[in-house]
Amino acid sequence: MAYRLLQCVIFFCQTFLLLSYVSADCTFPKVKEVTEGMRMIERLKGKRYTMEDMFYKYAIGICVPAQEGDKAAEAAVLQFDKHNTSKEPVIIGRVTAADIMHGGDWVLLEYNKGKSYTTHCGSEERRARIMITCDENAVNEQLFILSEENNRTDTCFYLFEISTDVVCPVKPLITVGLSVGSVILIVLFSVVVLYLILGFSYNRFVLRAKGYEQIPNYSFWKDFGNLQADGCNLICRSKDSQQPRSYKGVGDDQLQVDEERGSGDDHLLPM
């Protein structure tokens, strides 16, 4: 029950958002729900751009008529003849026949149902494709016309480009964290400082120690160097520090016969 209720809420929210897009004079007949591309151009909706080349001037609106209050209120892209200003502008695409595609950092907005060609492109209707690309350094949006594909048998279109930072992906916040080694060093340093403070206070105020005797475990740290040397001598050195004792037997000098006293035990015999 709760899952169905959640689905209904999501459906009504999407329908409301879709109606908001339609009410902004940008209708996507092929799109049945709100897409990420629609959200990406939300900040561009209602803006108008103009540009010109050697022969024509172009007016473009993003989900809004290119010119406000003219006869062709649905015209999203208009083409004006610079050399014949009295000529009616050519409608290239309409806001009521829009289509949209998107990628990670771009949106392709297409306006269809423009004025039909007369002599080429199979007399099909004109259309405009506006490639909205990411440019993080763009202060103001810039409009360029890239080409007019009108030498084909079908699918002819005008290709425009708008560089803006609106469609750039949002970069995640960079969080600076401490490594495991840094945490261990901080903890070790804190323990050493706490040991010194508590030990110094105890020796000074409880044991009434003076001078170097106030240092915690002063006798231990005093002999610490000697203890290190003994440990290194025991573990690292391969040669014994003491020479092995050699057996020293009875020498010949002790076995020599005393010439003055004679040989053997003759002096012990009775006369």
Rank of each mutant, 00 (worst) to 15 (best):
A2P: 03
V9F: 05
L17T: 05
Y21P: 05
Y21I: 15
V22Y: 15
D25S: 11
C26M: 08
E36M: 06
M38R: 07
M40A: 15
E52I: 05
D53Y: 06
D53R: 07
M54P: 00
F55R: 10
Y58D: 01
A59L: 00
G61H: 00
P65Q: 07
A66D: 09
A66H: 10
A66M: 09
A72R: 11
A73H: 00
A75V: 12
A76D: 06
V77N: 05
N84P: 04
S86I: 00
K87L: 14
K87S: 13
K87N: 11
I91D: 02
R94Y: 08
I100V: 10
H102V: 04
E110M: 12
K113T: 09
K113C: 01
Y117C: 04
C121M: 03
R126H: 08
I130D: 01
I130Q: 07
D135M: 07
V139E: 15
Q142D: 08
F144E: 13
F144V: 10
S147N: 13
E148D: 04
E149A: 01
N150Y: 09
T153H: 08
D154L: 12
T155F: 15
E161Y: 08
T164P: 11
T164M: 09
V167I: 11
P172C: 05
L173C: 02
G177H: 12
L178G: 04
V183L: 15
V187P: 00
L188M: 12
S190V: 10
V192E: 00
V192K: 05
Y195D: 05
Y195P: 01
L196E: 08
L198M: 01
F200M: 12
L207T: 11
R208L: 13
A209Q: 12
K210F: 14
G211L: 00
E213T: 03
P216D: 06
P216N: 06
K222F: 14
F224A: 14
F224S: 15
G225A: 06
N226L: 13
Q228P: 04
A229Q: 10
D230T: 12
G231E: 11
C232G: 01
K239L: 04
D240V: 06
Q243N: 07
Q243E: 08
P244W: 14
P244E: 15
R245Y: 07
S246R: 14
S246N: 09
V250S: 00
V250P: 08
G251R: 06
D253T: 03
Q256S: 11
D258P: 03
E259V: 13
E260P: 01
R261Y: 04
S263W: 08
D266F: 05
L269P: 01
